[in-house]
Nucleic acid binder design. Sequence first.
DNA 1: CGGCTTTGACCCGCGC
DNA 2: GCGCGGGTCAAAGCCG
Length: 270
Amino acid sequence: MDDGSSCPTNSAGLLPLSAGSPTAEGLEEKLRRVREENRRLAGTLGAILADRPDLRALMRAPASAVACARAPSGSASNAAREEAAGVTVEPRPKVRTVCARAEPADTDANLSVKDGYQWRKYGQKVTRDNPHPRSYFRCAFAPSCPVRKKVQRDAEDTSKLVATYEGEHNHARSPEREFVCNESIAIGHRPCSVSINPSGRTIRLEDMTNHGSGSRLDLETIRREVVTPEFQKLLVEKMVNSLKNDADFMHALTNAVAERILEIIPARLS
DNA sequence: CGGCTTTGACCCGCGC
DNA sequence: GCGCGGGTCAAAGCCG
C-alpha cells in the first residue's frame, strides 16, 4: 500500500531514527507528515471499498467483528477519537479481519477458517452482542509464533464467519495440512501456486491437490519427483523468491531485525 | 500416552 | 469501588 513517495520512510517502510533530541518544529513537521499519510491511506481505503461491497458492509458493522478487530481491549471509541484528531495510535500487533463462508458441517463449537496454518483452540466465549460463541485460537507454533485468531459467526448472516487475526506469522504455512484457499480469506496473502520443473516436466500444486479429479499425474509419480534433491533445492529457491517478493513478509522481517538490533545496541553500550 | 479440545474459573480493563 | 464483559488459563476429558 505504501509506495514510499510521500512518507519519509526507508525501504522497509520504517520511520527513520531521529538523529538528535526532538524539537517542537520537528514534532510539528512529523505530525504534519503523519496527517498527510492518514489522508492518503483514507483515500486508498475508500478506493478499495468502492470495489468491494462485502468489505464495505464489514466496515459498517459496528457490533462484534470490526470493533474487536480494531481495538482488542474494547477501546474502539478511543481509536475513533484519536483518528478524528489526526493522531496516530501507538504500534500494536497487526490486526486483520476477514470473512469466510461457513462449511455446512461446521457447528458453533468447531468453527474454523482454513487458511493453511495450524491453530490450537484455547478458549470459547459467548459475547454480549452475538448469540454465537466466539472461538479463540493460537498458532500451533506458539509461543515462538505470537499470532492469534478469533472466529465467530456473523450475528446477522449465520452462514458467514468473521475471523480476526492478530499479529504476523514468523514461519511458513504447514505444508502437510489441507489448505483450502478461499477467495475471501486470501486477503493479504499470496495465493499458493507454484510451478516447478526439476526434470523437464512441470508439476503444479494443482496437480497434487486435484489428483482425484482427472489429473494426468498419479500420486506415486509425484511422490517420486518430490523426494529428489533437485526438486527440493528448486522448491527452496522458489520459496525464497516468493518470500522476497512478499512485501508483508519483508516488512515483518525487517521490523524483527530492527527490534533485535535495538535490543543489542544498548546492551553493547552499557 | 501424548496431543488436542472443552469449559468453568479467573484476571483485567473500562465505564459508571 | 463495583459491576460488567472480553480475554486467557488450566484442569479434565476425549481421541487416535
